[in-house]
Design a protein around this nucleic acid. Structure first.
Lengths: 203, 203, 203, 203
DNA sequence: CATGAATGAGATTTCATTCAT
DNA sequence: GATGAATGAAATCTCATTCAT
């Protein structure tokens, strides 16, 4: 027996996931505005009306792709960071995990990268959840830095802002890596960023 | 005598500038897609048709705001960088000039910041000029780093990628500064970034 | 069972025909340029967007009304001409069939008549199909004349130009008949034209 | 002294003629709807506002080009027809004069030919003058035919309709001649039409 | 008189969303 | 539930006409 999961729930999840997968590709290709619900439905292999059975609006589909990816990414990063021993190793894990995840999920990254700034600038007062999602990643870094300071590994600076800078820098580095057709060596990309960051903050 | 400037030219420039100013605000608020020519016209205090006397399309207005700002910013940065003596000073000038310019031109920065990633990901096959405009800024940094290496001030790393990382980092730092209602001290913001960057790359 | 025709096809055809019918009337009243899609939609009893589900553009609707009518007319003419025995009878059939068809389909004729000359003068470089559609009718007349010459019924003249003249003359005669509210006797109208033409070309 | 013609009148005429000349070319190239007042003004070498000093609307310019040409053509035809002795000669003169005039004034003919049908079908209840202008040409033919009947040269048929048919046929023949880049021999074109017409109506 | 910048009504087309089947 | 035809609001762009200079 599936405790608490009816057949209905399974179908629901299956459909939702299918639509999200399709939508991710479409949004990655065209961006939010230029993507059409028609194209998403076609890519998902369902009728347009069906899309609206599972999502109340195009914007919600969009935010769902973003949320799913960000949560997934975050979980992965926490896992790898948790396995690291020193502040330096944790920072390297943070960078490496993100780089590797986005390399494997390029469509997600395209969305994450292109729409992130809009969300930041225009906010979405209707959907404050996203500030939290983004902050959560910077907060993780803050924790790493704070521990590093206490352990004497990291110089004390303005930790929230530094954390935020490193977070942004990581995103930029991933963009370089993912969007450059030549760059495929994740380790090398990790190395370049880690070196810059660690020297920048180490005691 | 009016050297080469007829009254017509003056009016032309005046209107063009007025429309661009208005457009900048509108694009900053809504982004390219959600902005409407109607709103731009209203903000500029002219009729919709008038806008089309000065720009052939909405997209052209948009790119004109972007181009004007980027060129202006670039000129300012080059001026300040040129006045600095050491590699460290030049990098500080680079960061400081950008931060200060964007602080004074927040609407421009909002556009620059939010549409930059789209241009990067989706490209602009019709208007390749913009790749150059963006590259020019990273290239300036490359030159600074290269000179720093030769002067023994800067460790040699992968210069193009490092330059690009610092460029992206600067943009992220500006975003923090400009979008955070609390942060108004440019010097402090400059200091934080410079410290991180310089330690990261110094010998 | 429905041989090859799904319900969807039926609905599709039904709507397409309805829009074409409505469009025919609108184009007949105003001409292509002055007709609006709004008016077509209203006449068809559907929303404006629905029109675009069935036709990609206003121009396509227009050409569809034209094409459908011309093909239908041509088929009718070929049928009646094929049933006639002598050259004289065939020419009479040609004239009579056209006159009668256009009398029954006055809206089509109005479009056909008013836009024909534009197509001739300005051409239709994007849609060369129409040159063929028009030519087909003159070519049929050429064949009739050629057979008449071989049978000794018709004097030999410049056959292509003569055919084209008779074709144009027929169209003009139909215009007289259709646009003159008084003239309703097709037989008489046919007689007048046939008499002029046959004496003009007979041996 | 110019009796009754002030300098003002002369300028007026000069400007009017210049605009009409320019407009003729523009209308011939694009048709009434697609022609723009901007293009007419530019072709005439005046400012757009100036056009409106001499004509109250675009439609009026258009009708003026049409009217001027039709009157001119009509005068020429009457002159040549008046010089001919027999009915056959007068009909030949009618056809020849028209063919030759339109060959010399191709822009006028393009307008005359393409917009004639629209005027016929849609009427222009606001401008009934044009019915008269067109009728005048058919009426001239009626007179010729009527005299021919009285002189025993022409069979009696329905003279108004026959006249109208020959008139239309002439226009079609001119179209063939003018629009066919190969056909340049006016005499031959005249011959083909005259032969057809004269045999068609002669006793 | 002449100009040409400004106007704004109006046209085509798109597409998120709804709802009868 | 699933469908996809239908809707209609909204957006871009054009251009005849006006009017201050």
């Amino acid at each position: 027996m599936h405790p608490g999961k009816t057949k209905k729930d399974v179908v629901q999840e299956f459909r939702t996931a299918g639509i999200l997968d399709a939508a991710r590709g479409v949004f990655a290709r065209h961006g939010f505005q230029a993507a059409t619900v028609d194209e998403i439905a076609e890519a998902a292999g369902v009728a347009k009306g069906t899309v609206y059975l599972y999502f109340p609006s195009k914007r919600d589909i969009f935010l769902a792709t973003l949320r799913a990816g960000v949560l997934d990414l975050h979980a992965e990063v926490e896992r790898q960071v948790g396995a690291a021993a020193s502040a330096e190793a944790r920072i390297r894990a943070f960078i490496h995990a993100r780089l590797e995840y986005c390399d494997r999920n390029r469509d997600f990254f395209r969305i994450y990268y292109t729409e992130f700034a809009s969300l930041q600038v225009r906010g979405h007062n209707d959907r404050p959840e996203f500030q939290d999602l983004y902050n959560r990643q910077a907060v993780l870094l803050e924790k790493i830095l704070g521990e590093g300071v206490r352990a004497g590994e990291v110089r004390f600076r303005n930790i929230p802002r530094t954390a935020r800078l490193i977070y942004d820098l990581t995103r930029a580095a991933i963009a370089q890596h993912v969007l450059d057709p030549g760059a495929t060596d994740i380790e090398e990309s990790t190395e370049i960023v880690c070196d810059l960051v660690w020297r920048g903050i180490a005691c």
